[in-house]
Design a protein around this nucleic acid. Structure first.
Lengths: 154, 154
DNA sequence: TTAAATGCAAATTATTTGCAGAAGC
DNA sequence: GCTTCTGCAAATAATTTGCATTTAA
């Protein structure tokens, strides 16, 4: 986990008047030591590798805190469960494109989209805040081979 | 409900080899007789006003069919439940901007965004399909008055 | 010392499913 | 008549919560 980020996260914790517990430390460490997206359940497993006493409840209670801190973001990949993306600390403006078939997710940034969204928000009488763009598309594998690697049987 | 749309929906039903039942008719009628977004639970209530025998299970079984037909779309408003938007039949390319505080939702269309997304998709090796844009922002009421009408107490 | 945080297990909420009877084609 | 659909009620899955206990500050 990036040292600078770690410091920022603990600053946030402290400013909120929250306590530094071994469980929270483990969860934070786990949450930001990967660049992969994960579910709450997966984070429990990762945190327990660092500190086995971490309970499901504590992870579920810590996740909203991290989301509130803005270092972690809840993203919608169209699944039944929430997915978390730890990469907003380093790239606050990225978006996701998802293959409708193999569910491959690619992150991207684009300044034009940023600008455009600002314009649109203002035009509609809003002050832009968080933006979520999700493009669902067909990846090249599907186009070329009629199927992609991980295409579910369904 | 728009007559043209009704015909298209029943075409879809028929092409899939599905049967036309009173319950399905009521659900379809309810689903497309409003331009408001709704939850499954709300659709149950609306459909029952037309045909009281409609059960929860049938609504939950019919919703994925309508989504598959592309006339209804599941949208993510950041709630714990799914939200459905019946306006994609008339405006297939619209997007949503949501006030982070009062949860007001405004629909908008923008050709530039369309174009930009096509470019981005292709650049990343995808063929554009469904696009979801959700902008979370602060609405003017909040900016002006420090609060918006429906701001939850939380 | 004392308020906040934890683990556990039970509760909640949205959604899904098995099954026996009803109904479309 | 043969399937597909339906309602019901029970099952599931993700997440939340109450409470007694532990722990950080």
């Amino acid at each position: 986990m990036d040292a600078e980020l770690r410091e920022k996260v603990y600053d946030f914790i402290e400013k909120k008047g929250l306590r530094k517990t071994v469980q929270r430390e483990a969860i934070i460490e786990a949450a930001f030591s990967t660049s992969s997206h994960y579910t709450a359940e997966e984070l429990i497993a990762m945190a327990r590798r660092i500190e086995p006493s971490v309970s499901r409840a504590t992870v579920y209670r810590t996740l909203p805190l991290l989301v509130e801190s803005r270092f972690l973001k809840e993203i919608d990949l169209g699944k039944d469960h929430k997915t978390y993306d730890p990469n907003f600390a380093s790239r606050p403006h990225h978006n996701h494109i998802i293959c409708v078939d193999c569910h491959k997710v690619v992150e991207f940034e684009d300044t034009h989209i940023e600008t455009l969204e600002d314009c649109i928000s203002k035009r509609l009488g809003f002050s832009p805040a968080t933006k979520t763009i999700r493009i669902e598309a067909t990846c090249d594998n599907l186009k070329r081979f009629g199927t992609c690697k991980n295409k579910p049987k369904a």
